[in-house]
Write a protein that binds this DNA or RNA. Structure first.
Lengths: 166, 166
DNA sequence: CTTGGAAAGTCAACAAGGCTGACGTAACTT
DNA sequence: AAGTTACGTCAGCCTTGTTGACTTTCCAAG
């Protein structure tokens, strides 16, 4: 409160106390962020890892396993377990690459797309409510801070996805 | 970037596409958010769950086990496993309540406070950098959206902590 | 055409950190 | 005296992450 001169606000909001609040906001908000899809998945035989896979396959149809590995940041063994369930249950389809036949291109089946939509709808509903409550200016700031918080590599992936869809 | 102008911003930012970007921003940013403390914990025998416990005990010294349970949103068995490690290693101290002797009040020891500080410093450094990069207005919006995203109960807990420290 | 290496898949074993259910004890409340 | 609350603990389970080792398939360079 007693930063003498020095541009005031630009220093004031960087106190440890302010930063701690931001940290706790992230913690509590992320819980809300995942709560709705988790509730839906609870009945089914799937978990949050399946949701993530469905999301990014939906987002980038035809993506390879390696792409997905990089985006999700897990080992291929870990992803494989999850992907296997989705393939076996016919929610995801894997097609051998045309150029490179070693690669597998992943697509959602109709049933996979249906579950993905169900999960997304729940998550989007909360996001939409939060955006509405906070307003456009806040949303802009929200996205700016989140982008600045990402690791450079993650940010690259995020921006690549972001632009490919815009 | 390529948002085609239009004063429709107040509607435009609620398209599914915009919401999806927000969802992915949360996903990638949360990874960054936890990356630094995780790296520190990797060497030690502790995990993210220990970090959370240390954080909230530091934040609210003397908090009871039940309080912590509610804040963290896990079962007592799950918390107990984590807390036991911290107690056995002398990072956390448990004192029997004066009014109600059933309660255990939790405190960080000097060593516990030291580890907590180390973890917090790493996490705060990233948060500080993100705040600096985005600026005060963005930070305000960031916090507004996160608060709006929390479950009402979580938000209550968040605000209670927030005010007690302000 | 052979060979090196990349992409993918698989098996096995393990750890962290969630969960449920059941049970015990001490202490407060009615 | 009986019931409830706070805490701890045992036992077992699940999801999702990890390493390490190994195979198959295939592209590409020698």
């Amino acid at each position: 409160m007693s930063e003498p001169g020095a541009g005031g606000e630009s220093l004031l909001f960087l106190t440890d106390e302010q930063l701690r609040k931001g940290i706790e906001a992230m913690f509590f908000a992320y819980r809300g962020f995942t709560a709705d899809p988790d509730r839906i998945l609870d009945g089914l035989d799937y978990g949050r890892a399946h949701h993530r896979a469905l999301h990014f396959i939906h987002r980038s149809p035809g993506t390879t396993v390696n792409n997905l590995l990089n985006i999700l940041g897990v080992t291929k063994q870990s992803l494989n377990r999850v992907l296997r369930g989705l393939l076996d249950d016919g929610l995801v389809e894997s097609r051998v690459g045309k150029q490179d036949k070693r690669e597998r291109h992943l697509f959602l089946t109709a049933r996979g797309a249906e579950l993905e939509r169900q999960l997304s709808d729940a998550q989007r509903a909360r996001m939409r409510a939060a955006y509405r409550a906070a307003g456009p200016v806040a949303v802009q700031g929200f996205r700016q801070v989140l982008e600045a918080m990402m690791d450079p590599e993650m940010k690259r992936q995020y921006l690549a996805l972001k632009e490919s869809g815009a």
